[in-house]
Design a protein around this nucleic acid. Structure first.
Lengths: 220, 220, 220, 220
DNA sequence: CATGAATGAGTCTTCATTCAT
DNA sequence: TATGAATGAAGACTCATTCAT
C-alpha cells in the first residue's frame, strides 16, 4: 500500500506516475523494469518515489492491484446482468475484451504480470494481490451450479479454473489472431487498438459456444 | 544453439549445467536469474560458460527448447495412440501431467517461462523457440474436425487455442489445488512431487469431460 | 558534455577528478585506462562517476576538450600580439612550449591523444572535439597570405598543415632532445619539468628560422 | 621476435596472419585489438598463436617492425637516387606516398601506431622498434649539410625532426584533403585507394617547395 | 606442433536504496 | 515534503594466457 504522501498528490501527477510505471512494467519484466528509468521518464525526483512507495515491490504490487481493480470495475459496469449463466459469461468476456481494447496499457501489463511467479521473492504474494475477478467467477460458477445451469457432473473447481483461464487469455488470442501488436503499440503509446466491435462479438460467440456446450446441462 | 564446445562436454557435466540453469530460471525471471549465480553454483569458470553459449539469451533459449522437447518426447512415448480425438486428448493431458509430476524442475521452468513475453527483447522469438506441442495440437484439432469428432460450428483456431491453454495450464491447477508447492520443492531440489496417479487420472477425467462435451459433435 | 552534477561539485573535487583522469589517460591508451582504476585512485564511488559523466567516452571527450581549451587560453594570454606573421608564429610556439613545460600533465595527455584515431569508435569525432588552436592557425595563415607575409606560390592548406604539425609536436622534440622524461614524470607526479627558458627560446628560434625563410616572400 | 615456428609456416599462412593482425591493430588501439578477435578472423587455433609469438606484445612489435621495413624497402627501391638533397627529399616523399596509396593497410596501421606512446608498458620501446627511415633521414640531413645543400645556420637535429615529421604525416594530409577515407576502406578491405598520381605529384611539389626554400642557402 | 577448452581477473555499466539539505 | 547526489554491490561479458591432449 503506497504511503499517504502518494495519495496527497494531485491526481494528475498520481496518474502520470501510474501510467509511466505501468508502461515500463508492461514491456519489461519486474527485474528489468527499473525505478531509475521510470523516474527518468516521469521527471520526478528519485527520492520522491521513495516518499510515495516503500520500495520497488510496493509500487509493483500497487500497480497489479490497481490494474485488477480497474478491469473489475469496468466489467462490473459494462456487463449487463443476466439470469442465465452462459449469457452472463458471454457478457463477462465481451466486457473484458472491450476493456482490453480500450485500455491496452493495462491489458498488456496484466498479460505480462499474470504468470511471473518469481517476480517478487520471499513473499506470499496471494495475500498481497487482490483477485476480485477470480473470486467473482468462482461465485458465478457456484451459483450457476445451484441454478442447474451447469451439469452436475462438472467439477466446480475445474470449471472455475477453465473459465478463469479463458477469461484472462481471451484477449491474448485476439492479439495474436488479428496482429494487434499490443507490445509495440503500448511502447509507442499508440492506442486505442483498432478492432471493430463486431469482430470481437463474433469471437466471443465462438468462445462461449465452445464453453457453453461443454458446461451446460444436457441429457445425452 | 549452443556452441559445439558444449556438446563436447561429458554428458554428466552438460546435464549438471542444464539442471542448475533450469533451476535458476525456474525460480527467478530471466533478468533476475544471473549467470554469475549459475556459474557459482555450477562451480565452472565464468569464462567457460561463454565458451558453451554465446550469451545469456542463447542459454535461455536453449533451455526453453530443451524443456519443450523433453516434454514433447515424453508425451509422444507415453500417450497411447487413439483413433478418437477425445480419447487421445485425454491421453495427452494424462501423459503431460505425468511428465510434470516426474519432472517438476522442467515443469516449473515452463510455467515460469510461458508468459514472460518481454524476457528476450528485440528478437522475433517465435523463430527461436520451438513449439512442437502446440503444432501437434493444432494438427490434432484439424484432423479431428475432418473426422467429424468436433462439431462443425466450432472454430478450429479457437479450439486449438483453448485446448492448448488447458494443456499448458493443467498442472498449474493441480499444483494449486493439491498444494504441491512446486516452487519450494524445486528450489530445495525435493522431488518428485507426491501425488497419486489415481488423483491425476480423476482430475484428467474432469477436464476432458468438460472439454469433450463442448467440442464434441452432437445434435441438440 | 558532463552532466550538471559534475559542475555542481566543489571545484576542488572537480579538479581532482580531472587531474586523476588526465593522468590515467596520459599514461595509457583510451581502452587501457580504466574507469575502475580512476575511480579507485580518486576515492569516489564508481556509481558517482556515472552521475557526472554519461560514460567513459563522455569523460574522455570532456578531457580532450578541456585540455585543448586550457592550452588555447593559455597561449591566447601569453602570446604577445604581433603584426608580422612570423613574429606571431614565434610567439605561438614559445607560448605553447611554456604551457607544455608548466602543464606537463596536460601536455603529456595531448601527446597521447593526438593520434589515437580509433580511440572512440562509431562517432564522427570531429564534431565532438574542439580544435580551437587549429582553426586559429588556419586563420593566421590566411591573414598572413593576404598581408603578403607569405610567398604567393605557397599553398595555404599545406602551410596550415605544416605549421599545425610543428606546433603540436614541438614539445615532443624538446622532450626527446633534452630527456625530459615526460612520461615518467607525469606518472610520478613530478613536475614542473626543468628546462631553462633560454633553452626553449633558442630552440624556438631554430624552428622559426627554419619555417620562416621557407615561407617568407623573397626575391631570388 | 617471433618464434621460429612462425617462420616455418607456409608463407601464405604467415601473410594471412600478418594481414589480419595488421587490420585489427590498424582500426583499434593496442589494447582494444584483441588476440581473440584476430584468432577468430584468422581461423587458426588460439593456442597456435602462442606457438608463433610469445605474447600479444611480441606480435605487435613484430608488426610495427614489419611495416616499417616494408615501407623502407619500398622507398629504397622506388626513390631514384639524386645528388642534390631536395631532389632526393622530393623522391622520398613521392615514393612514400606511392607506398601509402598502394599499401593502405600498412599505411593506416602506421598512422595508428605512430604516437601510441603508452601502447606497450614497462619497456624501453626504442630498443625494440626499428626506425630505419628515421635514421636514413638523419644521415641524409647530415650529408646534405656537409654538401652545403642546407644553410649552415640550420640546426640539423631540428631539420631532421621537421623533415621526419612531414614525411610521416604527409599521407595523413592527403587522406584528409581528398577524403580518402582510409579508415573505412581498410576495415572493408577496399583498396587500393583511388588518387591519381598527378595529384600526388602536385602535392609533393607543394610540400617540397615549402620545405626547400626554407632550408636552402640563399643570399638576401 | 596444433588444438581449443579452461580460467578468473577485470571491463563498463546499471541498480535500488539512503540521506543530507 | 521534495530533491538529487552518493554508494557499492552486482550484472553481462571479454581478455590474455595456460595446458592437457
Amino acid at each position: 500500500m503506497p504511503k499517504k504522501t502518494f495519495f496527497n498528490l494531485p491526481s494528475q501527477k498520481q496518474n502520470f506516475i501510474i501510467e509511466t510505471s505501468l508502461r515500463k512494467f508492461a514491456s519489461l519484466n519486474y527485474t528489468a523494469a527499473s525505478l531509475s528509468q521510470i523516474v527518468k521518464e516521469t521527471g520526478i525526483a528519485k527520492g520522491s518515489m521513495y516518499q510515495y512507495f516503500e520500495d520497488k515491490k510496493e509500487l509493483y504490487i500497487y500497480l497489479v492491484n490497481y490494474a485488477n481493480d480497474m478491469k473489475f470495475d469496468f466489467i462490473s459496469e459494462e456487463a449487463e446482468p443476466q439470469d442465465e449463466f452462459f449469457a452472463f459469461y458471454r457478457e463477462l468476456i465481451r466486457a473484458g475484451s472491450l476493456f482490453d481494447l480500450t485500455h491496452p496499457l493495462i491489458s498488456r501489463f496484466q498479460l505480462n504480470v499474470m504468470q511471473q511467479p518469481a517476480a517478487i521473492e520471499g513473499e506470499n504474494n496471494s495475500e498481497l494481490l487482490s483477485n476480485r475477478l477470480g473470486e467473482f467467477i468462482e461465485n458465478l460458477i457456484h451459483t450457476a451450479k445451484e441454478h442447474n445451469h451447469i451439469a452436475d457432473y462438472i467439477d466446480p473447481g475445474m470449471a472455475t479454473f477453465v473459465v478463469n483461464l479463458q477469461t484472462m487469455n481471451f484477449f491474448k488470442y485476439l492479439n495474436e489472431k488479428y496482429n494487434l501488436a499490443l507490445e509495440k503499440n503500448v511502447e509507442n503509446r499508440e492506442y486505442p487498438l483498432p478492432l471493430p466491435m463486431e469482430t470481437v462479438e463474433m469471437e466471443v460467440d465462438n468462445l462461449v459456444k465452445l464453453v457453453e456446450v461443454g458446461l451446460r446441462w444436457h441429457n445425452n
